[in-house]
Simulated assay, not measured.
Amino acid sequence: MKLRLVLSGLIALLVAASCHATTLKLAPEIDLLVLDGRKISGSLLKGAEGLELERGEHQFLFRVETTTSHHHLYLSVPLIATFNAQAKSVTIHLPELQTRSERKSFDASPDFKLIDEQGNEIASKRDRLITSHNDDLEKAMIAYNRNGQVASVPRFAQPQATTSINQSTPADLALSDTAAERLLNLWFHQVDSATRQRLVLWMKALRAS
């Protein structure tokens, strides 16, 4: 019962902010790694079909993870996209990656596109992140943005005050570990502080009733 009320409140807040948000749609083969300078926790994204982004400039780092027609696991190099969120939704469109030649070409020169809800390409700056397997991707992106690369965003060249979206959730918002609750937790750490405070106060009032 409480979960239904929580989700109802979340939906109400999302509807109120929907006219100022862009949905970044996440296909199953997209592994989002860093968003706007903050590391993303894969467990929080499990079961989520997209993320709500405020209008304006955004930068994300992702990796393609898919199984080929020959049942081989393919992991792309980390890829960077910088764009201005104005459309209602943004989808990452990938080329064919079934043959070894296609995958090798994609790793050398990634030709993915960002597409809006009407199928139009969104202007973006794209690049790949040259890094070793054990590198801290959040720190690697800070270094990338400091070096004035193709898809750099100077304001993400400094460590964020909160460096990971996989941070603790306030006790008043603590829920069990299901896809719905993980999505709520992820959304909570994406919105502005005023919206966070309203949600926490709403949860306090709910539990006191």
Score class of each variant (00 low, 15 high):
88 K>Y: 06
176 S>V: 05
159 P>F: 09
9 G>H: 09
130 I>W: 10
87 A>W: 04
46 K>I: 01
31 D>N: 12
174 A>L: 15
33 L>S: 00
111 D>M: 03
17 A>N: 12
9 G>Q: 11
146 R>D: 04
177 D>V: 04
187 W>D: 00
178 T>D: 14
114 L>D: 04
202 W>I: 00
138 E>H: 04
157 A>T: 02
93 H>Q: 14
74 Y>S: 01
38 R>C: 06
31 D>P: 01
115 I>Q: 07
139 K>D: 13
2 K>W: 09
55 R>I: 02
58 H>A: 04
208 A>K: 14
136 D>G: 03
173 L>A: 15
131 T>L: 03
85 A>S: 06
63 R>P: 02
200 V>H: 02
68 T>S: 15
55 R>E: 12
10 L>T: 03
49 E>S: 14
31 D>L: 10
191 V>G: 04
89 S>C: 02
171 A>D: 14
160 Q>S: 15
119 G>V: 03
97 L>Q: 08
198 R>M: 08
27 A>M: 09
39 K>Q: 12
186 L>Q: 11
138 E>Y: 02
13 L>H: 10
147 N>Q: 14
6 V>E: 10
176 S>C: 12
168 S>T: 11
171 A>K: 11
16 A>C: 03
74 Y>P: 01
184 L>T: 08
110 P>D: 09
200 V>P: 00
24 L>N: 05
93 H>I: 01
172 D>N: 13
168 S>W: 08
112 F>C: 02
183 L>Y: 07
62 F>L: 06
185 N>Q: 13
21 A>I: 00
